[in-house]
Write a protein that binds this DNA or RNA. Sequence first.
DNA 1: TTGCGCTTCCAAAACGTTTTCGGGTATATT
DNA 2: AATATACCCGAAAACGTTTTGGAAGCGCAA
Lengths: 332, 332
Amino acid sequence: MRVTIRDVARAAGVSVTTVSRALNGAADVGEETRQRVIEVAKQLNYRPSHVARSLVLRKSQNIGLLVSDFRKGGHHFLYDVLVGVHDTLAEYGYDVTLVSTDTARQQLVSYVDFCRARGLDGVIVMGIRLDDPYVEEVVESTLPSVVIDLPLLSRHCGYVMTDNVNGARYAVRHLVSRGCKRIGFVNGAAHAAVSRERLRGFEEAVRQYVGAFDERLVVYGDFTLEGGQRALAELLAKSPDVDGVFFASDLMAIGGIQHCKAMGIRVPDDLAVVGFDDIDLARFVTPALTTVAQPRYEMGCEAAKMLVHMLQKGEMPSGTLLPPQLVVRETA
Amino acid sequence: MRVTIRDVARAAGVSVTTVSRALNGAADVGEETRQRVIEVAKQLNYRPSHVARSLVLRKSQNIGLLVSDFRKGGHHFLYDVLVGVHDTLAEYGYDVTLVSTDTARQQLVSYVDFCRARGLDGVIVMGIRLDDPYVEEVVESTLPSVVIDLPLLSRHCGYVMTDNVNGARYAVRHLVSRGCKRIGFVNGAAHAAVSRERLRGFEEAVRQYVGAFDERLVVYGDFTLEGGQRALAELLAKSPDVDGVFFASDLMAIGGIQHCKAMGIRVPDDLAVVGFDDIDLARFVTPALTTVAQPRYEMGCEAAKMLVHMLQKGEMPSGTLLPPQLVVRETA
DNA sequence: TTGCGCTTCCAAAACGTTTTCGGGTATATT
DNA sequence: AATATACCCGAAAACGTTTTGGAAGCGCAA
């Protein structure tokens, strides 16, 4: 059936030890025998079994991509990060297997056990929320991990996220430069770490660029389209004089714009809008959405790179912030 | 370190054989010892090593998700399918590991070898094109596989795709029912299997519902936004009297609509438009796009199910067509 | 001759499971 | 009393690798 190292050894007239050494570039094997072994291996189309190798080496060159909530929205985000993770992990010679918290939860098993059973060398966590019970596990376990979009740092757990506070600052600064005097903020969900940071950036920027910070100008929209509509309505009811709004997500921003259309408010003339994320939609919606873009693909790459460094060089995990970028279109 | 089956055996005062049997529900182990073993295993938080098990069982309960071109567009499509695959595979107790043709190609290794080296039990292929050299491998290899969106059928290879010809028929029928008399078709790429099928459906439906089929009414737009713009311009140049257009993708349809806006053509009054795919964008664009939706998630599920049936019950692979669905919005 | 250091190779153990085959008891059958 | 029949259980082999601890050969110095 399968051609094993034993077959190669027999065909080359050496021991399995020598075959292993020859193929793995070990020192103590004669040059001519090495060549012969390599030749024979190619001849037989020999592929070492990753499984067997994993068993003896006690590492699988396989890392898990733990996704907390596969189904729910966030398509773009998760996908791009996933691709980034895959690409750079592949570069380093690692495979990636999908793990969803749902299946782990369903089997009533801690996610660490789930990963250990599969011999995963490490795990990249994304889409997890601050109030998820798995968070504790992530930071406490000795399984090397890096979390995306949640600032968790411990002995074996690093994180990478966009620089949300600066992203929010860019948004506000841009609104101000466009002449906005009274700027509102439609935030996402209070429990989300990114929301807190964006709020901080918003507040700092407002203090810096316009002066007083009026906390009645921040409302919450739950990251959804409808939430954006509702939240903007609420904001305008409280403060009819706002002339610019920063939304913590593009989806909410689009909802807000829909609300504006319904109410006869002109964007950006009556109300300037800037979103967050730069989802595909942003360029297609009319008017095209000005937004601050997250480097989704790069986040995946960075997370993968950090994990590999932890694994291979024993580096300590760290927290990395990736710079967002303001994309100016038509709404502000 | 790791708690193995031996530890459990020792703690329970039985042999490893018995532990294995007890935990795997084999028949010949006394009920009391079984309970004792289970108790001890839970006590020690024992998790069988999937790696060791894979080695001896010669199957990994792990299937590969081969993505031909991760980066390029198709975000929504690939992501939804991926989630569907993952969900149902998880249900059946299989893990899924990501495989991109790029990495295989880069290592100058056939994708089958790539999968075999990793001990994958089967593979689900998506995003592959008809002219990809891997196609031959897929149909000829004995590695169980199912392909998405490409009608490849062989002893070990099945496929699942949407019923593109009926999808196209729905589109045409709807345009006709809206009163269109002269209907154009902006197809994708000539080499894509789906394009051929949609063309067939279009032609059949035109013959059935309007009468003569004029092949000058079909142009190609390469599935891109710009391609859609160009193609529609070309179509209108050749036949200014078309009053309805079916686009083989939403992206092209949106491009076409942009072209209409630029030319002062009213949609749907002057020109009715229906797209294909139902990407997220479709509902947000103005006017909202009428389109025929592909059951992306279900395609993933179906593919996974077929593969599992092949693996577990030795079923022969088959070709399944999933019904698309017309989503009527504002453009037609 | 002996001893020593190189180089090149190998036998065997180990990784953590499953499974085959057979051994031992107790109970039922002749 | 002998034998068959269940029923439990265990020793050992197997899966395909890597690695440890020598061993054999050889040249060279003492």
